[in-house]
Simulated assay, not measured.
Amino acid sequence: MNHQQIDTTTANSYLPMVSVVVPIYNGEADLPDLINCFTSQTYPRERVEYLLVDNNSSDRTFTFIEKFSANSSITIHPLSEKQIQSSYAARNTGIKAAVGEIVVFTDADCRPQPQWLNALIKPFVNTEIVIVVGEIVALPGTNLLEKYADRQETLSQKHTLAHRFCPYGQTANLAIRRTVFDQSGLFRPHLNSGGDADICWRILRSNLGSLEFAPEAIVQHRHRVTLKELASQWRRYGRSNRYLHELHGVELMRDISLKEVGYRLARWLIKELPRSSAKAIAGRADLVDLLNTPISLFTARARAGGQRNAKLPEEAKTIEWLN
């Protein structure tokens, strides 16, 4: 009983210095809400620095970052990464400038909830933990595609944590103990997808420490609202899988043929649609239920196309190091 009390007391008093790194490209519209979320964090303000890294934006992102850094009640450092157009290169710029014991990652279009940092940092009281993964939930949406993605929990970290090769966390909500970068290296700066899995796998498969999931460390994120955005998202997932196949030997996802698409659409028209329509009339189904199969086939084809057409550039294999 006393042991449990000591553990709880230790965990509650554990307040390491934290560096939050955010890569930003043309994010001026997102910055006010993002800064409000940072200002609302319950983690002690004097123990957090926010490193906002402009990645060669063509809008007023850097000007806005400088403005917020001068007028905010939290510590904001404006940084810039202009040499390499890549969120991973921008994150590396942030890591190299960070002074915190724990480096936390999120994105400009994410909305961290007030308890986010508290919940994300607490597991690090265990010195064997080197990666903590928080949860990603959808911002409320009314669009059909947003509702579909919400129903599928597309953004949830439970999918990446259950990866058959090795668990990992997405950089929209991820924390890493800074000391492991000395041994694992930083992100691959020229990679344009899959860098979150790559860095987690390099750390975990080198036995540098373990990963823990912090489900109460929540950030909200918008889902895609147009078919074009949805296709781009799933093509990126496909590219990521191809890159990770080449870097780590991950099994490629099965391609989906036009013949299979035709068969599943026919089955949807003949069997599923009439059944879902009847449920909709009875008030037990909605538009997402009616169109679930065609949207799923659309995303599957986009992902397959992304995987099929991707080729990992030789420079993307390069790992950047702290020193």
Rank of each mutant, 00 (worst) to 15 (best):
F64K: 08
N92C: 11
C37A: 14
A108Y: 01
K122H: 10
V53F: 05
P23K: 06
N71Y: 12
A29Q: 15
L51F: 03
Q83W: 04
F105I: 01
R45Y: 04
K67R: 14
A98D: 03
E46Y: 09
I102E: 12
L117W: 01
I76W: 07
A89P: 05
W116E: 10
E46G: 11
T75Q: 07
S57D: 11
S80M: 10
L52K: 01
A70F: 00
S73A: 15
D107K: 02
R45C: 05
A119G: 00
L51H: 09
N55F: 03
V53M: 08
V99G: 13
I24T: 03
F64I: 00
G27F: 05
A119L: 02
A29P: 10
G100T: 07
N118V: 06
I102M: 14
R111N: 06
N92Y: 10
Q41E: 13
Y25H: 11
R111K: 13
F68C: 11
A29V: 08
P78I: 09
P23L: 01
L34R: 04
I35Q: 04
H77E: 08
D107Q: 08
A119F: 00
T42E: 15
C37G: 03
Q85P: 00
V48M: 06
K122Q: 14
Y50D: 06
K82D: 09
Y50C: 02
E101H: 06
I76A: 12
D33C: 07
A89F: 03
N26E: 13
D109A: 06
V22N: 07
Y50R: 06
V53C: 08
N92E: 14
L51G: 01
A108P: 04
A119S: 13
E66N: 11
N26H: 09
K96N: 08
I24Q: 05
Q113S: 10
T39S: 14
P32F: 00
N36E: 13
A70H: 09
E66M: 01
N36S: 12
R111W: 06
I102L: 14
D30M: 10
E28S: 13
L34I: 06
P44G: 14
S73H: 13
T106G: 05
S58V: 11
S73F: 07
V22I: 14
W116L: 09
I24A: 07
D109N: 13
N26C: 10
S87M: 13
V21W: 06
P114V: 09
T63D: 15
T75W: 02
P32D: 02
P112Q: 14
V21R: 00
P78R: 10
N71A: 15
L120G: 04
L31S: 09
D59G: 10
T63C: 04
P123T: 08
T39C: 13
Q113C: 08
L79Q: 01
E46C: 07
S69Q: 11
I35L: 01
A108D: 12
N92G: 10
N71D: 15
R111Y: 11
V99S: 11
